[in-house]
Design a protein around this nucleic acid. Structure first.
Length: 469
DNA sequence: TGAAATGTTGGGGCG
DNA sequence: ACGCCCCAACATTTC
């Protein structure tokens, strides 16, 4: 019989540092590092286009860090694992937990099946600061409001794991029958729209570490105020790295905690808290991606005008701040959080679309598309979630732009056809005098759309619709 | 992690 | 000096 090996099954933990399952796997035996591309179980939430692109490059980066030893498979996860166990002398299979409801279910079955052949199977916490089942109210039920969840639930629980170093002595095993390359997974789009994403991102564990370092050295100073201004460098943009586990929340948490206590630091930490909260909601309300948490919203009279939806998707609503956000999303795979709230409110409240239309578009376009964060956030902005924004809180894209992009730097970058408009009319070009428009070479309806809806009347329509439920 | 409508206050112009 | 009006600035309420 060949030498005993352990398997480390990489999933949303594409890193070597602070990887609890990997660190366990390298003890005592050589390790077969594997990745399985198995998208079939995910239903409507199969990987979106942008996510596939990121995953492709992230796997390449991981494979390099593993000296090319990553074994890649595609197909049914359980079949592939059982096949490995039959062919190789596997002693144990280790992985870090994922929290999508179907994965929780599948992982439990896989664990059972592996153990039934006398092979050890063990899962670890590699992606959350606190496991959802460790943070409960004193009556044993899950929190539904963020502040007590974070302040009482998380911060009073035992502190998160201190990051553990990368294994220093990896002995790798090989699978001679593994012939699949990362390219062969076909994660890149056939029409290479992904090229425009490239200049905006450095992918992989090393890039994530550098980004964290840079952020804690400069961006975090002034975070509390600056994070609301999309033109300012005060947000970390770590979300895609975090989603794919190129960096763990523990590393970010610990880096922030090592800085001097400040308002900025507390606010940044609480954003990690929101990520935990979303995961807790998904864990205790697995229907979160599909069902309004507040049932009364099931009766809401949503509109459904495909043309309107398209205008929103491609950033042609005639509201420059909304269009800037939607185009940022399309061009870079990312959108600043302030603008996410504005475009979300616009879709759900001004256009009166069900939040799932927004959730789907974001799922396909966002590099940081994450089931827990995306679903919870869309339910939040729609007012139907747990601890959601009140439904009557409707953003005005004009005043939001004036407030949070006062110099128009962000908006002009993504809506360049309006670049020559003075600040005064940048967010409301339909109110600009004729000569101002002419001077900026803009004819509304030709160079830039007229507003597709009226803010005042749609706002009133939304409030009336809300009242009706 | 809103915005609009409504209410209150206080300074200044003016008869 | 006084009452009156206007209105900006701020506060509160409502959606």
């Amino acid at each position: 019989m060949s030498k005993e090996i352990n398997i480390h099954w990489f999933r949303q933990d594409l890193r070597l540092i602070d990887n609890p399952a990997l660190s366990e796997a390298v003890k005592q035996r050589s390790v077969l590092p594997i990745y399985i591309h198995d998208d079939e179980q995910a239903g409507r939430h199969r990987l979106g286009g942008a996510s596939r692109w990121w995953l492709h490059h992230s796997l390449k980066s991981l494979n390099e860090a593993l000296n090319g030893m990553l074994c890649v498979y595609a197909g049914n996860t359980q079949d592939i694992l059982m096949n490995l166990i039959q062919r190789l002398n596997v002693k144990a299979v280790y992985w870090n937990r994922c929290y999508e409801p179907w994965r929780i279910h599948h992982d439990a079955m896989i664990k059972k099946t592996i153990r039934s052949c006398g092979v050890e199977a063990q899962s670890f916490n590699g992606s959350l600061l606190w496991e959802p089942w460790k943070v409960l109210k004193s009556d044993g039920t899950p929190y539904k409001v963020f502040t007590p969840f974070f302040k009482n639930g998380c911060l009073n629980a035992p502190p998160p794991r201190t990051p553990i170093p990368a294994p220093d002595h990896c002995q790798f095993a090989q699978d001679s029958l593994c012939k699949l390359s990362i390219d062969a997974l076909g994660l890149l789009p056939r029409i290479r729209w992904d090229k425009q994403l490239e200049p905006h991102w450095q992918i992989g564990e090393k890039a994530a570490q550098e980004k964290l370092k840079k952020f804690t050295e400069s961006g975090l100073i002034g975070y509390r105020e600056g994070r609301d201004f999309p033109a300012k460098p005060n947000v970390s943009r770590l979300s895609p790295h975090l989603h794919f586990g190129e960096i763990s929340p523990n590393q970010i948490w610990s880096a922030a905690l090592s800085l001097e206590d400040s308002d900025d630091r507390e606010h940044f930490l609480s954003e990690l808290g929101w990520r935990e909260f979303s995961h807790s909601l998904l864990y205790y309300f697995p229907e979160l991606p599909h069902k309004n948490l507040q049932a009364k919203f099931d009766r809401f009279p949503w509109s459904n005008d495909a043309g309107m939806l398209r205008h929103w998707q491609i950033g042609q609503t005639g509201y420059p701040f909304v269009d800037a956000g939607m185009r940022e999303l399309w061009q870079t795979g990312y959108m600043h959080n302030r603008v996410r709230m504005v475009v979300g409110s616009f879709l759900v409240k001004n256009l009166l679309f069900h939040w799932q239309h927004g959730e789907q578009w974001f799922w396909d376009c966002l590099l940081d598309a994450d089931l827990a964060n995306n679903s919870a956030s869309w339910q939040w902005i729609s007012g139907c979630g747990a601890d959601a924004a009140p439904y009557f809180r409707i953003f005005n894209p004009t005043t939001q732009g004036q407030k949070f992009d006062p110099t128009g730097e962000y908006t002009r970058q993504y809506v360049p056809e309006l670049a020559a408009l003075p600040d005064k009319y940048l967010f409301n070009p339909w109110e600009a005098p004729e000569n101002v428009l002419r001077h900026a070479d803009i004819t509304l309806g030709i160079h830039y759309p007229k507003p597709i809806i009226d803010l005042k009347t749609t706002r009133e329509r939304a409030l009336a619709a809300f009242k009706s439920i």
